Amino acid sequence: MPARPTPPEGPRVGEPVPGARRRGAGPARSRRDPVRAYIGLGANLGDAVTAVKEAALALGRLRATRLVARSCLYRSAPVDAQGPDYVNAVAAVDTGLTAPELLAALLRIEQRAGRLRPYRNAPRTLDLDLLLYGSARIDSATLTVPHPRLRERAFVLLPLAELAPNLVAARDLEAVRSQRLDKLAP
């Protein structure tokens, strides 16, 4: 497994982020402290590298949201699916959006990237998953946070550990060690 770089110190997940920008925040949002959220990015159709990089930038353009960091890019084989290898990364954002609002924004970014859902686990031009939303635990008909398969996938755990090593347990990394994951680029 590749060595994990030490990220710069910052607030822990769920803590207020000093100086976080709140673009588009109106009076109703002025009292809400930003939440650190982590988003899994992946693609395996078309120019997957460009799709993932552009999706990370699109996250930073969301209302009341600031892109904090993006992990390196990784290549992985599809899990429970067919098709070409995936390009994956994880992004950290500070957001004033609620978790459902953030999920809706992620779905709009996927749709603009041409995401189709012809069947479960179909190859995709872009896949955005809300992995963590602060320390929230959400279990609704449309959203589960933490992401239910977060700890089962090397293509999520390694990039997440790159950004927030305190959120990834060594036992979880060991459990996914056999999953092929190739580091591509920053």
Rank of each mutant, 00 (worst) to 15 (best):
Phe155Ala: 11
Tyr86Thr: 09
Val90Ser: 01
Ala113Cys: 09
Val35Trp: 05
Arg22Cys: 15
Thr142Asp: 12
Val145Cys: 09
Leu173Phe: 04
Asp85Asn: 02
Leu126His: 12
Leu126Lys: 13
Gly83Tyr: 06
Gly19Trp: 06
Gln179Lys: 09
Arg115Met: 12
Val79Arg: 08
Ala164Gly: 06
Ile109Arg: 11
Asp47Met: 06
Gln179Thr: 06
Ala58Phe: 02
Pro165Val: 08
Arg61Gly: 15
Arg108Glu: 15
Ser76Gln: 04
Ala185Ile: 01
Gly134Trp: 05
Leu128Cys: 07
Asp129Met: 00
Leu163Trp: 09
Asp172Pro: 05
Leu107Phe: 05
Val176Asp: 02
Asn166Pro: 09
Pro123Gly: 07
Arg36Gln: 13
Ser178Tyr: 10
Leu167Ile: 12
Arg108His: 13
Leu45Met: 10
Ala3Cys: 13
Val49Asp: 06
Thr142Asn: 08
Ala20Ser: 14
Pro16Val: 07
Thr144Val: 15
Ile138Trp: 06
Thr98Asp: 12
Arg23Ile: 15
Arg115Val: 14
Leu160Ser: 04
Glu152His: 14
Leu157Phe: 03
Ala43Ser: 15
Thr95Val: 14
Asp85Trp: 01
Phe155Arg: 00
Ala122Ile: 01
Arg124Tyr: 09
Ala136Phe: 05
Arg171Thr: 15
Arg75Thr: 02
Asp94Ala: 15
Leu184Pro: 01
Gly46Ser: 09
Glu9Met: 10
Arg108Phe: 06
Val87Asn: 03
Pro146Phe: 11
Ala25Gly: 15
Gly60Ala: 03
Asn44Lys: 02
Arg70Val: 14
Gly134Pro: 09
Pro11Phe: 03
Leu150Gly: 04
Arg149Ile: 07
Leu73Lys: 02
Arg180Glu: 15
Leu45Tyr: 03
Leu132His: 02
Leu107Cys: 02
Pro165Asn: 05
Asp80Glu: 11
Arg149Pro: 00
Arg66Asn: 13
Ile39Glu: 02
Pro8Gly: 11
Ala122Ser: 10
Ser30His: 13
Arg153Asp: 04
Val90Glu: 02
Asp129Thr: 04
Val52Ser: 05
Phe155Val: 14
Arg32Phe: 11
Leu45Val: 02
Arg36Phe: 01
Leu126Met: 10
Val17Lys: 09
Asp47Arg: 04
Arg137Cys: 11
Val52Leu: 03
Ala89Leu: 05
Asn88Trp: 07
Gly96Val: 03
Leu131His: 06
Ser71Trp: 00
Leu73Met: 08
Gly83Ser: 03
Pro11Ala: 10
Arg117Asp: 06
Leu131Glu: 08
Leu106Phe: 03
Arg66Glu: 15
Pro146Cys: 14
Ala113Lys: 00
Val52His: 04
Leu143Pro: 08
Arg120Asn: 08
Arg12Ile: 10
Arg108Cys: 10
Ala164Cys: 09
Ser71Ile: 04
Ala64Thr: 08
Val49Cys: 06
Phe155Met: 10
Gln179His: 03
Arg115His: 14
Leu62Val: 03
Tyr86Leu: 07
Leu126Cys: 12
Pro148Thr: 06
Gly14Cys: 13
Val35Asn: 05
Pro159Leu: 00
Thr125Met: 08
Ala104Ser: 07
Val79Thr: 07
Arg120Phe: 05
Arg180Pro: 13
